[in-house]
Design a protein around this nucleic acid. Structure first.
Length: 217
DNA sequence: TTATAGATTGCCT
DNA sequence: GGCAATCTATAAT
């Protein structure tokens, strides 16, 4: 598999309501070009943040130095540092000036497993076990580390540029059934069912607290 | 200027 | 299950 096997999704894909984008992203591929390595994961969990009308969004109180990418055009990476330890990877949605986004929360590893394991400091057996693979990319901080995504290198990165080191692509695979639940650890708006997961997928991030499922939202 | 909470994870008991 | 790590934003002094 090479970088030329995939091309980035067009900007119009991200120029929609963040909830629609989040749902449509389930089953798509997150592609990271890093030197001679090509790291690819299938998106199995994502959350939508609606910006100025969403108390759970970083953009709710208006633009800051941290969130300014969200106020720019769609299809750009918003990478932030959280809890003093981890990066989280988001994609800007909505038109310029309307700061919606989608947080990528879990991937199913597809390609480049060895460099992902090296980035995570994880030892993979031969063959790797499911728990080992899950520890690579199941969780927003983990997937960002596995793919080598940092704020310094990737915040503001245009995911629709054909030369981008980071982009979203699709292969021929049929999209999975998608289920929605409430978002994880979003205490400011705990009831909005804007977390989307591939039903039954083994790589969904662990949830300590019970979440409210909502198949209709 | 100082305090506290946060879109998390890993290690401890 | 508890909690430390320790950057960023915002609320409280």
């Amino acid at each position: 598999m090479t970088a030329s096997d995939f091309s980035p999704l067009p900007r119009e894909f991200f120029l929609r309501d963040a909830r629609t984008v989040a749902r449509q992203l389930i089953g798509k591929l997150l592609v990271r070009r890093a030197g001679r390595h090509l790291l690819i994961g299938r998106i199995v969990e994502a959350e939508a943040y609606l910006g100025l009308r969403d108390p759970g969004s970083h953009a709710y109180r208006g633009p800051t130095e941290r969130n300014r990418v969200l106020f720019g055009p769609p299809g750009h990476a918003y990478v932030y540092f959280i809890y003093g330890n981890h990066y989280c990877t988001n994609i800007s949605c909505h038109a310029e000036g309307d700061p919606g986004c989608v947080l990528l929360r879990a991937l199913e590893p597809v390609s480049g497993l060895a460099p992902m394991a090296a980035n995570r400091g994880v030892h993979l057996g031969e063959p790797p076990t499911i728990p080992q693979l899950k520890s690579l990319t199941s969780g927003p901080g983990r997937l960002s580390q596995a793919l080598g995504i940092t704020r310094a290198a990737h915040n503001g990165c245009d995911l629709c540029d054909t030369t981008s080191p980071l982009y979203i692509a699709e292969d021929g695979q049929r999209p999975p059934r998608v289920v929605s639940t409430t978002r994880i650890n979003v205490t400011a708006a705990p009831d909005d069912p804007w977390r989307y997961i591939a039903a039954g997928n083994a790589f969904i991030s662990g949830t300590k607290q019970p979440v409210k499922r909502n198949h209709n939202a």
